[in-house]
Nucleic acid binder design. Structure first.
Length: 421
RNA sequence: GGAGGGAUGGCCGAGUGGUUAAAGGCGACGGGCUGUAAACCCGUUCUCUUUCGAGUACACAGGUUCAAAUCCUGUUCCCUCCA
């Protein structure tokens, strides 16, 4: 372990910017720090993993981490990094989302049994009872218009077509969070992604002006892949942390399929790998890149932390069966277990067996028979591990497993399951 | 308010009466190579049809013509310039 939190963040490449004196402040002793999470969905996606890891690092270095869920700010919408005005969520939806986030954070942080237990707060608790008049009088007074208009997030939105008063006010709310946590918890540090810099400094300003205290901000880089695209988005959409939204199998595969460069970077970002172990792994990876040890390490580590060791085990067994293993060595029941996350279709056993083309449509592999035919012609389809070249085949000619199950494969890694019973 | 330009397949973009289901690019999908990678190479990419072929399609609604994405009229939407 590095000597201090800042050193730790630095070698991991997680230190993007910090307010003046932040590093000194952190080295003086344990501090209380917070990071905000946006509850616009009931699950966080992998993009939120970085701030979560930041809380974890805080706790490891003896600081007290506070996770703040924006029950109130989520109703407003942060204009940072957004090009459009957001839809507002109702209170009930938000409450549900907050609960989901609480459950998730519990997997990463210790909430009791140690000297610096993590805390979770919801800013709706203090914004709910607060009146508009109070905000304008006590908080708004400390915000010069010129400073607000000068914020990058505001400028970009104004020139991109406008911003509503509601979202314009967002920074005031986030700043007030900091003030509130400073007063009630002695919180002196806010962390976040670099897109939060404007909001964070709004907070340190507010605390300085209204409580006459020096508090700090530390921001982390935004995670992008090697080609600069936003991290965590795939063609199927975001990669979520909850198993209901993104299956553990897909989750594991997401990490496993990272490029060499990204994998090494992400190990520093998303695992607790020590610097020594990292260097060992890195040189091993550079020497034998085809073994993809970095990807495997990354996928195992993150999947275990998010979904648990048991789930990792299951996912790895599926992976072994799918890549390199022999499907037909498994029983129908085992296959159903392995492919429980694959798209599944069903066809009835009729007098005349349905054709393969129909089956492909039934499991959602293709939209039309023409497309199915072309795919077979191109050599992109296997059934129960056997590559198909004849699109006229009927199901009874394709050796159903235990006379009722087909595993269809499209391309090299997309699987579909067909029940024929 | 005045003048002009435009709307083509998931996206960009050729095409101004007949070999145009519509060039080219991107994306997507499949194959090869490989490490379940990157790069690269090849193929496919409206629907139905084994093939032949048929149907639908170039903003929308009509019209001219043997024949229209292409010409005409109206409608809707977008853009640029002037005031």
């Amino acid at each position: 372990m590095a000597n201090t939190l800042v050193d730790e963040l630095r070698w991991r490449g997680l230190l993007f910017d910090q307010t003046e004196g932040a590093e000194a402040h952190l080295s003086e002793g344990p501090v209380t720090a917070y990071i905000g999470f946006d509850p616009t969905s009931d699950s966080l996606h992998v993009g939120s993993l970085l701030p979560i890891m930041a809380l974890v690092h805080l706790q490891r270095y003896g600081h007290t981490p506070i996770g703040l869920v924006g029950g109130a700010t989520g109703m407003i919408g942060d204009p940072s990094g957004k090009s459009k005005e957001r839809n507002l969520l109702d209170e009930k939806t938000l409450r549900g989302n907050v609960e989901g986030i609480r459950a998730l954070l519990a997997k990463f942080l210790k909430f009791d049994g140690i000297e610096n237990p993590a805390k979770l707060v919801n800013n709706y608790d203090w914004f709910g009872p607060l009146s508009f008049i109070e905000v304008l009088r006590d908080v708004g007074k400390h915000f010069p218009m010129s400073a607000m208009l000068g914020k990058e997030s505001v400028k970009r939105r104004v020139s991109a077509g406008g911003i509503s008063y509601t979202e314009f006010s967002y920074m005031i709310l986030q700043a007030y969070d900091f003030l509130q946590l400073y007063r009630s918890e002695g919180c002196t540090l806010q962390m976040g992604g670099s897109d939060q810099w404007g909001n964070i400094t709004a907070g340190t300003e507010l605390v300085r002006r209204s409580a006459d205290a020096k508090v700090h901000g530390v921001v982390m880089p935004l995670v992008t892949n090697a080609s600069g695209e936003k991290f965590g988005k795939t063609v199927d959409g975001a990669v979520w942390l909850s198993p209901e939204k993104t299956s553990p199998y897909k989750f594991y595969q997401f990490w496993l399929n990272q490029s060499d460069e990204n994998a090494l970077q992400y190990i520093k970002f998303f695992t607790l790998c020590t610097e020594e172990d990292y260097e060992t792994l890195r040189s091993a990876h550079l020497e034998t890149p085809h073994l993809r040890e970095a990807q495997k390490y990354l996928a195992r580590d993150v999947t275990t932390r998010v979904h648990g060791a048991e789930t990792l085990n299951r996912v790895e067994r599926s992976t072994a069966a799918l890549f390199g293993g022999d499907l037909t060595s498994l029983s129908a029941n085992e296959l159903e277990e392995v492919f429980q996350e694959a798209p599944t279709g069903q066809l009835p056993k009729t007098e005349e067996a349905p054709g393969l083309l129909e089956a492909m449509i039934a499991v959602g592999m293709t939209q039309s028979k023409g497309e199915a035919r072309r795919l077979i012609k191109g050599g992109g389809v296997s059934v129960n591990g056997v590559k198909i070249s004849d699109s006229q085949l009927k199901l009874d000619e394709l050796n159903p497993i235990e006379d009722r199950l087909f595993i269809l494969k499209k391309g090299s890694k997309k699987y579909f399951m067909l029940r024929w019973e």
